Simulated assay, not measured.
Amino acid sequence: MLPYRSKLSVALFLAPPLLLYGAAVLLPIGQSLVLSLFSWDGITEMQFVGLDNYRFMLTGDPVFWRTFLNQLGYVAICLVLQLGGGLVVASLLASLTRGREVIKVLYLLPAVISTVAIAFLFNRVYAVHPQGLVNGLLGAVGLDGWERPWLSDVNTVLAAVSTPEGWRFIGIYMVIIYAALIAVPQELAEAASLDGANAWHIFRHIRFPHIRPVWLTTTIMATTYALRGFDIPYLLTNGGPGQSSELVTTYMYKTAFTSTNYGYASTLAVFIVVECLVAVGLLVAMLRRRADA
């Protein structure tokens, strides 16, 4: 539909980012896909094994399935904190008349703090000796029985390493959702209020349907980022104790750089890419079905 000159201009502007994306993203994915068909320790000659790495991953590696289940739990906690917390804060922010900018800055600060600094911060927050913030607060309110070594208890470590990641990005999703909420036509909410609708009905039937496309985008962003989560769990526990907080990403890293099994590590990397694509497809299909309903 564009004239030739406009098409040429669009192509010229799109070419640099597309080339950069291809070199930085698509090319490594292709290399991982090829390498996943080989057995290679990084030094000796590569040996072609076909689909044996995939067969071992799916049927012969119990550690992989443990890390996969951990990854699902990690994603669930991150989504609840990031999207649920972001939606609640954005809704409260939309009702304020003063102090909005200060609150937005405070919630956005964690997103610009170094990952290493956040890991050290939460390592201190969860500490037992000297007593960290979490155990100190529990003791202060009389819940001494709940005090525990959060990062070395197999029952709590996964939630403990997921919480910093969820807390870190609440501000980003809060700002995105807040921008969508304030764009909802105010007269619709006022008309519904005059008809007797309460705040929940206004949000459910007016505001949320209007922000559904933004909600889909933020859900995809948060899900794919959580599926690729690596740094904070690795820095806090290195996957321990045992494999209680081991994720597919940390397992892939150790397989490549500790076990020097680059072929199988590439198989895990390909799985992470496929996992993200499947998650995006399921989210789009589910939210579109609800919208059509």
Rank of each mutant, 00 (worst) to 15 (best):
I29C: 12
A117T: 03
A285W: 02
V154I: 11
G86N: 08
C276W: 00
P185H: 14
A159V: 13
D231I: 12
Y126W: 13
G86E: 07
E101Q: 14
I113W: 10
E101M: 12
A179E: 04
L69N: 08
P209C: 04
G145E: 03
F122D: 04
V49I: 05
R289N: 01
V274A: 14
V125C: 09
D41V: 01
A127T: 03
L93E: 04
W150S: 14
A291S: 01
F38R: 00
P164E: 13
P213K: 06
E165Q: 06
V88T: 11
Q71R: 07
S244T: 01
V112Q: 08
M174Q: 11
V125G: 02
I43L: 11
N53D: 01
I176Q: 08
A119C: 10
Q82I: 05
L14D: 02
T250C: 01
S266C: 13
L18Q: 01
Y225N: 09
L69R: 15
A11Q: 05
L35W: 05
L92Y: 14
G240P: 02
P16W: 12
L27E: 03
E45K: 09
S266T: 10
I172P: 12
G22H: 07
I103M: 12
L137D: 06
F13M: 07
T67V: 10
D144L: 09
P149Q: 07
W215T: 13
G50T: 02
S152Q: 01
V284P: 07
T217Q: 09
G84I: 00
R289V: 00
V184D: 09
D41M: 04
P130Y: 06
Y262M: 12
L137I: 12
A127S: 15
W65E: 12
W40I: 04
V214D: 04
A293E: 07
L268V: 12
T67Y: 05
L27D: 02
Y54N: 00
P149A: 13
H205M: 08
L283M: 06
E45C: 02
G281R: 00
S36E: 00
E101L: 15
T237Y: 11
A293N: 00
R207H: 10
S114N: 08
L133M: 13
M174E: 11
L81Q: 04
Q186Y: 09
A94Q: 09
V49Y: 05
Y21Q: 00
K104M: 11
I29V: 14
F13D: 06
L72S: 14
I220P: 09
T250S: 08
G99Y: 14
T163V: 15
R5N: 02
T260H: 13
Y74W: 13
C78F: 14
L92C: 15
R66G: 12
A222P: 06
N53L: 01
S36F: 07
L188H: 15
S32Q: 03
R212P: 06
S152C: 05
W200V: 15
V214L: 01
M57D: 04
L2F: 13
D41G: 08
S95M: 06
